[in-house]
Design a protein around this nucleic acid. Structure first.
Ligand SMILES: [Zn+2]
Ligand SMILES: [Zn+2]
Ligand SMILES: [Zn+2]
Ligand SMILES: [Zn+2]
Lengths: 165, 165
DNA sequence: ATTGCCATGTTATACTATAACAAACCTAAT
DNA sequence: ATTAGGTTTGTTATAGTATAACATGGCAAT
Protein backbone atom coordinates (compact mmCIF):
# COMPACT_ATOMS: atom_id res chain seq x y z
CA UNK A 1 0.00 0.00 0.00
CA UNK A 2 0.94 3.62 -0.14
CA UNK A 3 -0.40 6.54 1.77
CA UNK A 4 -3.12 7.26 -0.72
CA UNK A 5 -4.76 4.09 0.54
CA UNK A 6 -5.02 4.65 4.24
CA UNK A 7 -4.57 1.74 6.58
CA UNK A 8 -2.45 0.55 9.44
CA UNK A 9 -0.23 -1.79 7.43
CA UNK A 10 3.28 -1.42 8.71
CA UNK A 11 5.19 -2.58 5.66
CA UNK A 12 4.77 0.13 3.14
CA UNK A 13 7.16 2.42 1.38
CA UNK A 14 7.64 5.40 3.66
CA UNK A 15 9.90 7.18 1.22
CA UNK A 16 7.32 6.86 -1.50
CA UNK A 17 4.66 8.28 0.83
CA UNK A 18 6.73 11.28 1.60
CA UNK A 19 7.95 12.01 -1.90
CA UNK A 20 4.49 11.62 -3.29
CA UNK A 21 3.02 13.90 -0.64
CA UNK A 22 5.67 16.54 -1.24
CA UNK A 23 5.32 16.57 -4.99
CA UNK A 24 1.55 16.72 -4.71
CA UNK A 25 1.91 19.63 -2.30
CA UNK A 26 4.19 21.49 -4.67
CA UNK A 27 1.80 21.03 -7.54
CA UNK A 28 -1.23 22.08 -5.51
CA UNK A 29 0.47 25.21 -4.25
CA UNK A 30 1.56 26.10 -7.75
CA UNK A 31 -1.98 25.69 -9.05
CA UNK A 32 -3.36 27.74 -6.19
CA UNK A 33 -0.66 30.40 -6.46
CA UNK A 34 0.39 29.76 -2.89
CA UNK A 35 3.99 29.76 -1.79
CA UNK A 36 5.33 26.51 -0.43
CA UNK A 37 8.39 28.20 1.06
CA UNK A 38 11.42 26.24 2.30
CA UNK A 39 10.32 26.25 5.91
CA UNK A 40 6.78 25.19 4.99
CA UNK A 41 8.07 22.42 2.79
CA UNK A 42 10.44 21.23 5.49
CA UNK A 43 7.67 21.09 8.06
CA UNK A 44 5.51 19.08 5.70
CA UNK A 45 8.43 16.77 5.02
CA UNK A 46 9.09 16.26 8.73
CA UNK A 47 5.46 15.44 9.36
CA UNK A 48 5.42 12.86 6.59
CA UNK A 49 8.78 11.43 7.60
CA UNK A 50 7.53 10.61 11.04
CA UNK A 51 4.38 9.23 9.59
CA UNK A 52 2.46 9.61 12.77
CA UNK A 53 0.86 12.55 14.54
CA UNK A 54 3.54 15.04 15.57
CA UNK A 55 3.34 17.79 18.17
CA UNK A 56 4.48 21.24 17.10
CA UNK A 57 7.28 21.27 19.61
CA UNK A 58 8.51 17.88 18.48
CA UNK A 59 9.22 19.40 15.08
CA UNK A 60 11.21 22.36 16.33
CA UNK A 61 14.58 20.63 16.87
CA UNK A 62 14.67 19.48 13.25
CA UNK A 63 13.90 23.02 12.15
CA UNK A 64 16.77 24.32 14.22
CA UNK A 65 19.04 21.63 12.79
CA UNK A 66 18.15 22.77 9.28
CA UNK A 67 19.21 26.30 10.13
CA UNK A 68 15.78 27.86 10.49
CA UNK A 69 14.63 29.94 13.35
CA UNK A 70 13.09 27.52 15.75
CA UNK A 71 10.96 29.76 17.90
CA UNK A 72 7.38 28.50 18.24
CA UNK A 73 5.80 31.05 15.88
CA UNK A 74 7.83 29.63 13.02
CA UNK A 75 6.36 26.20 13.30
CA UNK A 76 2.85 27.36 14.07
CA UNK A 77 2.82 29.63 11.06
CA UNK A 78 3.95 26.84 8.81
CA UNK A 79 1.34 24.51 10.30
CA UNK A 80 -1.34 27.13 9.84
CA UNK A 81 -0.48 27.49 6.18
CA UNK A 82 -0.37 23.74 5.64
CA UNK A 83 -3.73 23.33 7.35
CA UNK A 84 -5.27 26.07 5.23
CA UNK A 85 -4.07 24.28 2.13
CA UNK A 86 -5.42 20.99 3.45
CA UNK A 87 -1.94 19.48 3.44
CA UNK A 88 -2.05 18.62 7.11
CA UNK A 89 -4.78 18.14 9.69
CA UNK A 90 -4.73 18.89 13.37
CA UNK A 91 -5.81 16.17 15.78
CA UNK A 92 -7.37 18.02 18.69
CA UNK A 93 -7.34 15.17 21.17
CA UNK A 94 -3.57 14.76 20.69
CA UNK A 95 -2.56 18.38 20.11
CA UNK A 96 -0.77 17.00 17.10
CA UNK A 97 -0.58 17.29 13.33
CA UNK A 98 -0.56 14.72 10.56
CA UNK A 99 -0.21 14.79 6.81
CA UNK A 100 -3.32 14.47 4.68
CA UNK A 101 -3.17 11.76 2.01
CA UNK A 102 -5.77 13.52 -0.15
CA UNK A 103 -5.07 17.25 -0.10
CA UNK A 104 -6.22 17.70 -3.68
CA UNK A 105 -9.84 17.69 -2.64
CA UNK A 106 -10.58 19.44 0.63
CA UNK A 107 -12.73 17.36 2.93
CA UNK A 108 -13.92 16.72 6.45
CA UNK A 109 -11.31 14.75 8.28
CA UNK A 110 -11.69 12.00 10.82
CA UNK A 111 -9.14 9.67 12.34
CA UNK A 112 -8.56 6.27 13.80
CA UNK A 113 -5.72 6.58 16.30
CA UNK A 114 -3.94 3.51 17.64
CA UNK A 115 -2.94 3.84 21.27
CA UNK A 116 -0.52 0.95 20.83
CA UNK A 117 1.69 2.22 18.02
CA UNK A 118 0.59 5.88 17.92
CA UNK A 119 -0.21 5.67 14.24
CA UNK A 120 -3.28 7.42 12.89
CA UNK A 121 -5.13 6.92 9.65
CA UNK A 122 -7.69 9.11 8.04
CA UNK A 123 -11.19 7.76 7.87
CA UNK A 124 -13.75 7.99 5.15
CA UNK A 125 -16.07 10.27 7.05
CA UNK A 126 -19.01 10.10 4.69
CA UNK A 127 -20.99 7.55 6.74
CA UNK A 128 -20.32 9.26 10.04
CA UNK A 129 -21.13 12.63 8.55
CA UNK A 130 -24.44 11.28 7.34
CA UNK A 131 -25.29 10.09 10.84
CA UNK A 132 -24.16 13.36 12.35
CA UNK A 133 -26.08 15.55 9.97
CA UNK A 134 -29.25 13.63 10.64
CA UNK A 135 -28.86 14.10 14.39
CA UNK A 136 -27.96 17.74 13.89
CA UNK A 137 -30.85 18.55 11.60
CA UNK A 138 -33.32 17.15 14.12
CA UNK A 139 -32.19 19.95 16.40
CA UNK A 140 -32.04 22.51 13.59
CA UNK A 141 -28.29 22.65 14.03
CA UNK A 142 -26.19 23.76 11.07
CA UNK A 143 -22.86 21.95 10.89
CA UNK A 144 -19.73 23.92 10.09
CA UNK A 145 -16.95 21.62 11.21
CA UNK A 146 -16.58 18.14 12.66
CA UNK A 147 -13.96 16.68 14.96
CA UNK A 148 -14.05 12.90 14.78
CA UNK A 149 -11.17 11.17 16.51
CA UNK A 150 -11.39 7.54 17.50
CA UNK A 151 -8.81 5.99 19.80
CA UNK A 152 -8.31 2.25 20.00
CA UNK A 153 -6.07 -0.57 18.82
CA UNK A 154 -5.12 -1.34 15.25
CA UNK A 155 -5.09 -4.95 14.09
CA UNK A 156 -1.33 -5.27 14.51
CA UNK A 157 -1.42 -4.03 18.05
CA UNK A 158 -4.33 -6.30 18.93
CA UNK A 159 -2.25 -9.25 17.75
CA UNK A 160 0.71 -8.00 19.68
CA UNK A 161 -1.40 -7.78 22.81
CA UNK A 162 -2.57 -11.35 22.30
CA UNK A 163 1.04 -12.50 21.96
CA UNK A 164 2.14 -10.64 25.06
CA UNK A 165 -0.70 -12.03 27.13
CA UNK B 1 -37.35 21.40 28.83
CA UNK B 2 -34.80 20.50 31.41
CA UNK B 3 -31.25 19.33 31.05
CA UNK B 4 -32.22 15.70 30.90
CA UNK B 5 -33.66 16.50 27.47
CA UNK B 6 -30.76 18.06 25.69
CA UNK B 7 -31.37 20.82 23.22
CA UNK B 8 -30.49 24.39 22.52
CA UNK B 9 -33.70 25.95 23.84
CA UNK B 10 -32.77 29.04 25.77
CA UNK B 11 -35.78 29.28 28.07
CA UNK B 12 -35.42 26.50 30.50
CA UNK B 13 -35.02 26.33 34.23
CA UNK B 14 -31.31 26.66 34.90
CA UNK B 15 -31.76 26.26 38.63
CA UNK B 16 -33.63 23.06 38.14
CA UNK B 17 -30.88 21.75 35.87
CA UNK B 18 -28.26 22.42 38.43
CA UNK B 19 -30.10 21.13 41.46
CA UNK B 20 -31.12 18.01 39.63
CA UNK B 21 -27.58 17.40 38.44
CA UNK B 22 -26.16 17.92 41.91
CA UNK B 23 -28.62 15.63 43.65
CA UNK B 24 -28.08 12.95 41.02
CA UNK B 25 -24.35 13.28 41.52
CA UNK B 26 -24.67 12.90 45.26
CA UNK B 27 -26.77 9.82 44.89
CA UNK B 28 -24.47 8.23 42.33
CA UNK B 29 -21.41 8.84 44.45
CA UNK B 30 -23.13 7.39 47.48
CA UNK B 31 -24.10 4.28 45.53
CA UNK B 32 -20.59 3.94 44.19
CA UNK B 33 -18.94 4.67 47.52
CA UNK B 34 -17.11 7.60 46.04
CA UNK B 35 -16.59 10.82 47.93
CA UNK B 36 -18.19 13.90 46.42
CA UNK B 37 -16.12 16.22 48.59
CA UNK B 38 -16.91 19.93 48.99
CA UNK B 39 -14.43 21.04 46.36
CA UNK B 40 -15.64 18.40 43.90
CA UNK B 41 -19.24 19.34 44.49
CA UNK B 42 -18.45 23.01 44.07
CA UNK B 43 -16.69 22.43 40.78
CA UNK B 44 -19.64 20.43 39.51
CA UNK B 45 -21.98 23.18 40.64
CA UNK B 46 -19.93 25.86 38.89
CA UNK B 47 -19.91 23.89 35.68
CA UNK B 48 -23.68 23.47 35.75
CA UNK B 49 -24.26 27.08 36.78
CA UNK B 50 -22.52 28.35 33.71
CA UNK B 51 -24.32 25.86 31.61
CA UNK B 52 -21.81 25.99 28.86
CA UNK B 53 -18.36 24.51 28.36
CA UNK B 54 -15.97 25.99 30.92
CA UNK B 55 -12.19 26.08 30.86
CA UNK B 56 -10.40 24.87 33.98
CA UNK B 57 -8.86 28.26 34.59
CA UNK B 58 -12.22 29.98 34.28
CA UNK B 59 -13.37 28.04 37.31
CA UNK B 60 -10.45 28.92 39.54
CA UNK B 61 -11.58 32.40 40.65
CA UNK B 62 -14.84 31.01 42.01
CA UNK B 63 -12.89 28.37 43.88
CA UNK B 64 -10.72 31.02 45.44
CA UNK B 65 -13.81 33.07 46.32
CA UNK B 66 -15.24 30.05 48.12
CA UNK B 67 -12.12 29.79 50.24
CA UNK B 68 -10.51 26.82 48.53
CA UNK B 69 -7.00 26.64 47.33
CA UNK B 70 -7.12 27.82 43.78
CA UNK B 71 -3.91 26.45 42.36
CA UNK B 72 -4.39 24.51 39.12
CA UNK B 73 -3.98 21.03 40.60
CA UNK B 74 -7.05 21.59 42.74
CA UNK B 75 -9.34 22.12 39.81
CA UNK B 76 -7.76 19.45 37.63
CA UNK B 77 -8.06 16.86 40.37
CA UNK B 78 -11.71 17.68 40.85
CA UNK B 79 -12.29 17.55 37.11
CA UNK B 80 -10.51 14.24 36.86
CA UNK B 81 -12.72 12.75 39.54
CA UNK B 82 -15.87 14.14 37.96
CA UNK B 83 -14.86 12.75 34.59
CA UNK B 84 -14.14 9.33 36.06
CA UNK B 85 -17.60 9.32 37.56
CA UNK B 86 -19.11 10.41 34.24
CA UNK B 87 -20.43 13.59 35.83
CA UNK B 88 -18.62 15.86 33.39
CA UNK B 89 -17.12 15.43 29.95
CA UNK B 90 -14.10 17.12 28.46
CA UNK B 91 -14.47 18.76 25.06
CA UNK B 92 -11.05 18.39 23.46
CA UNK B 93 -11.53 20.94 20.71
CA UNK B 94 -12.38 23.61 23.29
CA UNK B 95 -10.12 22.54 26.15
CA UNK B 96 -13.26 22.82 28.22
CA UNK B 97 -15.55 20.83 30.47
CA UNK B 98 -19.32 20.43 30.60
CA UNK B 99 -21.79 18.65 32.83
CA UNK B 100 -23.26 15.38 31.65
CA UNK B 101 -27.06 15.20 31.76
CA UNK B 102 -27.04 11.38 32.02
CA UNK B 103 -24.28 10.36 34.39
CA UNK B 104 -26.26 7.41 35.72
CA UNK B 105 -25.37 5.32 32.71
CA UNK B 106 -21.86 5.80 31.41
CA UNK B 107 -21.74 6.32 27.69
CA UNK B 108 -19.80 7.57 24.72
CA UNK B 109 -20.20 11.32 24.52
CA UNK B 110 -20.54 13.55 21.51
CA UNK B 111 -21.39 17.21 21.23
CA UNK B 112 -22.97 19.86 19.08
CA UNK B 113 -21.23 23.13 19.85
CA UNK B 114 -22.70 26.45 18.77
CA UNK B 115 -20.09 28.97 17.72
CA UNK B 116 -22.69 31.73 18.09
CA UNK B 117 -23.74 31.32 21.71
CA UNK B 118 -21.03 28.91 22.93
CA UNK B 119 -23.60 26.46 24.20
CA UNK B 120 -23.02 22.76 23.73
CA UNK B 121 -25.45 19.88 23.91
CA UNK B 122 -24.77 16.22 24.17
CA UNK B 123 -25.68 14.13 21.18
CA UNK B 124 -27.20 10.73 20.97
CA UNK B 125 -24.10 9.07 19.60
CA UNK B 126 -25.65 5.72 18.77
CA UNK B 127 -26.03 6.42 15.03
CA UNK B 128 -22.58 7.96 14.81
CA UNK B 129 -21.06 5.09 16.70
CA UNK B 130 -22.69 2.62 14.37
CA UNK B 131 -21.16 4.34 11.36
CA UNK B 132 -17.80 4.58 13.06
CA UNK B 133 -17.67 0.99 14.17
CA UNK B 134 -18.46 -0.20 10.65
CA UNK B 135 -15.60 1.86 9.25
CA UNK B 136 -13.32 0.72 12.04
CA UNK B 137 -14.09 -2.96 11.71
CA UNK B 138 -13.28 -2.87 8.01
CA UNK B 139 -9.75 -2.02 9.08
CA UNK B 140 -9.77 -4.44 11.99
CA UNK B 141 -9.58 -1.50 14.36
CA UNK B 142 -10.91 -1.96 17.88
CA UNK B 143 -12.53 1.17 19.24
CA UNK B 144 -11.81 2.23 22.81
CA UNK B 145 -12.91 5.83 22.87
CA UNK B 146 -14.50 8.34 20.51
CA UNK B 147 -14.16 12.10 20.31
CA UNK B 148 -17.07 13.53 18.35
CA UNK B 149 -17.36 17.30 18.47
CA UNK B 150 -19.39 19.19 15.92
CA UNK B 151 -19.13 22.96 15.64
CA UNK B 152 -21.81 25.00 13.93
CA UNK B 153 -24.81 27.22 14.57
CA UNK B 154 -27.85 26.35 16.68
CA UNK B 155 -31.30 27.27 15.42
CA UNK B 156 -31.46 30.40 17.58
CA UNK B 157 -28.16 31.69 16.31
CA UNK B 158 -29.09 30.98 12.71
CA UNK B 159 -32.20 33.12 13.19
CA UNK B 160 -30.15 35.80 14.84
CA UNK B 161 -27.78 35.82 11.90
CA UNK B 162 -30.70 36.18 9.51
CA UNK B 163 -32.00 39.15 11.53
CA UNK B 164 -28.61 40.83 11.64
CA UNK B 165 -28.11 40.43 7.93
C1' DA C 1 -4.24 4.95 69.37
C1' DT C 2 -2.08 3.28 65.16
C1' DT C 3 -1.83 2.52 60.59
C1' DG C 4 -2.67 3.28 55.97
C1' DC C 5 -5.15 5.37 52.36
C1' DC C 6 -7.15 9.02 50.13
C1' DA C 7 -7.65 13.91 49.47
C1' DT C 8 -5.80 18.44 49.54
C1' DG C 9 -2.18 22.12 49.83
C1' DT C 10 1.80 24.00 47.75
C1' DT C 11 5.54 24.97 44.68
C1' DA C 12 7.43 24.40 40.57
C1' DT C 13 7.51 23.21 35.92
C1' DA C 14 6.12 21.24 31.42
C1' DC C 15 3.56 21.68 27.42
C1' DT C 16 0.75 24.20 23.87
C1' DA C 17 -0.19 28.37 21.40
C1' DT C 18 -0.43 33.35 20.20
C1' DA C 19 0.52 38.65 20.43
C1' DA C 20 3.16 42.24 18.80
C1' DC C 21 6.47 44.49 16.28
C1' DA C 22 10.70 44.63 13.44
C1' DA C 23 13.28 43.09 9.51
C1' DA C 24 13.72 40.77 5.19
C1' DC C 25 11.69 39.34 0.95
C1' DC C 26 9.03 39.02 -3.03
C1' DT C 27 6.07 41.18 -6.62
C1' DA C 28 4.28 44.15 -9.59
C1' DA C 29 3.57 48.57 -11.19
C1' DT C 30 5.99 52.92 -12.37
C1' DA D 1 16.00 50.15 -11.75
C1' DT D 2 12.91 52.15 -8.35
C1' DT D 3 9.51 52.24 -5.36
C1' DA D 4 5.52 51.02 -2.93
C1' DG D 5 2.66 47.37 -0.95
C1' DG D 6 1.92 43.01 0.57
C1' DT D 7 3.62 38.63 2.48
C1' DT D 8 6.86 35.96 4.98
C1' DT D 9 10.12 35.42 8.58
C1' DG D 10 12.78 36.76 12.84
C1' DT D 11 12.51 37.84 17.57
C1' DT D 12 10.92 38.62 22.16
C1' DA D 13 7.54 38.16 25.21
C1' DT D 14 3.47 36.31 27.09
C1' DA D 15 -0.92 33.78 27.38
C1' DG D 16 -3.22 29.54 28.12
C1' DT D 17 -3.50 24.54 29.45
C1' DA D 18 -1.97 20.73 32.29
C1' DT D 19 0.95 17.83 35.32
C1' DA D 20 5.04 16.41 38.54
C1' DA D 21 6.49 16.00 43.02
C1' DC D 22 6.34 16.19 47.68
C1' DA D 23 4.27 17.84 52.06
C1' DT D 24 0.24 18.01 54.97
C1' DG D 25 -4.09 16.82 56.71
C1' DG D 26 -8.47 14.05 57.31
C1' DC D 27 -10.77 9.77 57.65
C1' DA D 28 -11.63 4.91 58.36
C1' DA D 29 -10.48 0.20 59.66
C1' DT D 30 -8.02 -2.33 62.66
ZN1 LIG E 1 -7.35 14.68 4.87
ZN1 LIG F 1 -1.16 0.03 16.48
ZN1 LIG G 1 -22.75 12.43 28.93
ZN1 LIG H 1 -26.23 29.34 19.41
Amino acid sequence: MNCEDPGFEANHDHDHCMESALSTAKELCRERKQRLTPVRELVLKLIWENHQPMGAYELLPALAAAGFNSAPPTIYRALEFLQEQGLVHRIASLNAFIGCPHPENPHRSGFLICSGCQRAVELDTAPVHKALSESASELGFQIAHETVEVVGLCADCQNQEAVDA
